[in-house]
């Protein structure tokens, strides 16, 4: 049985105003335990709305979201449980920090879960260690931290709930290359250590290609594509219709395919370079002969 099943959900914003929009239209898919999923789509495609459906923050106008086989909107308890089982970290989460100390802030989620105080403390420290937030900083105000530290502190607040499914909405937005790489390895490590399902939204095709095992492409509130990075990024035309472009490496290789070469799929620059070298060598041999 799938860990999560999204069954024909639809949702509209702003009923009856001149600004009404359909955010989701008849979206269905399943999520298996331990999957690593990247969600892409341009702004307004419905990806953020979809993420808020998965932890019951929003209730679909029609359709159902099943978590471990049960409707997450069955009653109030199931809604609260879904919030903790499915941890959602918003975009720019550092703007939601409020605690007097970092420890207080990280402990907010676990406390709301009603855990005993020792457990809350243990989880807080474990989460801080995990995001590499210095223990000494735990007693400082989160507003004294640097930008990157704030982001990690906020992510720790979600990790401390130890969700079975972790969702991150654009976790790398606004970070410089070093901060971005640190965040990506953090996402990978959480999944490796806990076996949790991880879903992340990103605007970067390169990150989606490099990190995820499965990619969902959202377009105008519908699920336009669903597959492995190779499957998704080979659909250049469809992606373009969704306002997206495959990563640079994929574009180079598909341009060569269009010229009649037998180029494989690759995303990492090293793999792409290997593939190109092979093509160049084969071509040289041919011209010599």
């Amino acid at each position: 049985m799938a860990q999560m099943r999204i069954d024909k959900i639809s949702y509209r914003y702003g009923h009856g105003t001149p600004f009404e929009i359909a955010a989701l239209r008849d979206v269905s898919f399943e999520i298996g335990e331990g999957e690593l999923i990247g969600v892409i789509g341009h702004t307004g495609s419905g990806k953020s709305t979809l993420m808020q459906m998965l932890n019951a923050l929003l209730k679909p106008d029609s359709g159902t979201v099943y978590l471990n086989g049960a409707d997450i909107h069955k009653d109030k308890t199931s809604v609260y449980r879904a919030r903790f089982q499915v941890g959602l970290c918003f975009q720019y989460p550092e703007y939601q920090l409020f605690g007097e100390t970092c420890a207080e802030d990280i402990a907010f989620g676990p406390r709301n879960m009603g855990l005993p105080e020792e457990e809350v403390k243990a989880r807080t420290e474990r989460a801080a260690d995990f995001v590499r937030l210095d223990r000494a900083l735990l007693q400082r105000s989160p507003f004294d931290l640097s930008g990157g530290q704030k982001r990690r502190c906020a992510v720790a607040g979600v990790l401390a709930m130890q969700p079975e499914i972790l969702i991150l909405d654009e976790p790398t937005a606004g970070l410089d290359p070093a901060g971005r790489d640190a965040m990506i390895s953090l996402i990978r490590a959480y999944r490796q250590n806990t076996g949790a399902t991880v879903i992340f939204v990103t605007h970067s095709m390169e990150i989606a290609a490099a990190v995820s095992e499965r990619i969902l492409v959202m377009d105008h509130g519908t699920l336009a594509l669903d597959g492995t990075p190779a499957e998704v990024f080979s659909q250049a035309e469809l992606l373009e219709k969704c306002g997206l472009a495959p990563p640079f490496s994929a574009r180079v290789l598909s341009a060569l395919r269009a010229r009649g070469y037998d180029a494989p799929d690759a995303f990492a620059p090293e793999e792409t370079a290997d593939a190109l070298c092979a093509l160049l060598r084969a071509e040289e041999k041919q011209t010599v002969c």
């Binding site: 410089d176 070093a178 990563p247 640079f248 490496s249 620059p269 370079a273 190109l276 070298c277 160049l280």
Partner: peptide, 29 residues
């Protein structure tokens, strides 16, 4: 400096390291 090459330049760099003679002025897509 805590930075990295743009995607196209990175690919050029990888190719050069593999002995492909990409001219030095090439770094853009």
């Amino acid at each position: 400096c805590g930075l990295e090459l743009p995607d196209a330049a990175k690919l050029c760099d990888c190719l050069r390291k593999r002995g492909v003679k990409v001219p030095p002025e090439v770094y853009r897509e």
